[in-house]
C-alpha cells in the first residue's frame, strides 16, 4: 500500500528539461489558460497559496517584474494551489496582483512540475525549457530572479 502511494512522477521537471503543459483556470471567471499559449515568451511560473507568508512577500516583486519586463516579452503567471477559491480571493484583495493569476484545480500542474516548496518559481525560456527553479522567497531572491529573467529575455528563440 505504501508503494502505491509513492509512485514517482513520470515527468521530472528540472533545469534543462521541457516544461510540462498545464491546463489552468481563472479564479474569477470562466477563462482557461494553458502554458502552451504563451510559447515564445519567457515564462515566470510561480506556485503559491494564501497560507504561505513568503508568497505574500513575493507578490510585490512579481508586480514589479511584470511591470518592468512585460514589454520585453516576460509573462508572469501565478498558479494558486488553495483548496477553495475564497481563500485565494481574500489573499488577492490584500495583495493585489497585476499579472496573470490562475488556479490549478486538480493539482495536476503542481504534480507535473514536481513542486517541492511553497512558493516555487520556474523560469522557462522562449523555447519552453525550464532554465531556473527557485524554492521559497527570501532576501536576495528578487535580485537573483530578476537577473535570470533578464538573461533569458536577451536570448533569441531557436528557429523551429
Amino acid at each position: 500500500m505504501l508503494a502505491l502511494t509513492q509512485i514517482p512522477t513520470v515527468f521530472a521537471a528540472e533545469v534543462g528539461s521541457k516544461a510540462p503543459d498545464c491546463e489552468l483556470s481563472s479564479i474569477n471567471d470562466k477563462q482557461r489558460y494553458n502554458l502552451q499559449q504563451f510559447h515564445g515568451k519567457v515564462l515566470y511560473v510561480d506556485f503559491w497559496s494564501s497560507w504561505c507568508p513568503p508568497c505574500a512577500k513575493s507578490f510585490p516583486f512579481m508586480n514589479e517584474l511584470d511591470r518592468d519586463l512585460k514589454d520585453s516579452g516576460l509573462q508572469v503567471i501565478a498558479i494558486n494551489l488553495d483548496q477553495t477559491h475564497e481563500d485565494a480571493k481574500t489573499f488577492l484583495a490584500k495583495y493585489p496582483a497585476n499579472f496573470t493569476v490562475a488556479a490549478d484545480e486538480n493539482e495536476k500542474c503542481a504534480r507535473d512540475f514536481d513542486v517541492k516548496a511553497m512558493p516555487s518559481s520556474y523560469l522557462i525560456d522562449r523555447n519552453g525549457v525550464i532554465r531556473h527553479i527557485h524554492l521559497g522567497f527570501r532576501e536576495g531572491a528578487a535580485e537573483e530572479l530578476r537577473l535570470v529573467a533578464g538573461q533569458l529575455l536577451a536570448e533569441k528563440p531557436e528557429p523551429k
Binding site: S49, L81, Q83
Partner: peptide
C-alpha cells in the same frame, strides 16, 4: 494507509 506523503501545497 495513514502514512501518505503530504505535498508541499497541501500543508495549508
Amino acid at each position: 494507509s495513514g502514512c501518505s506523503p503530504v505535498a508541499p501545497w497541501q500543508r495549508g
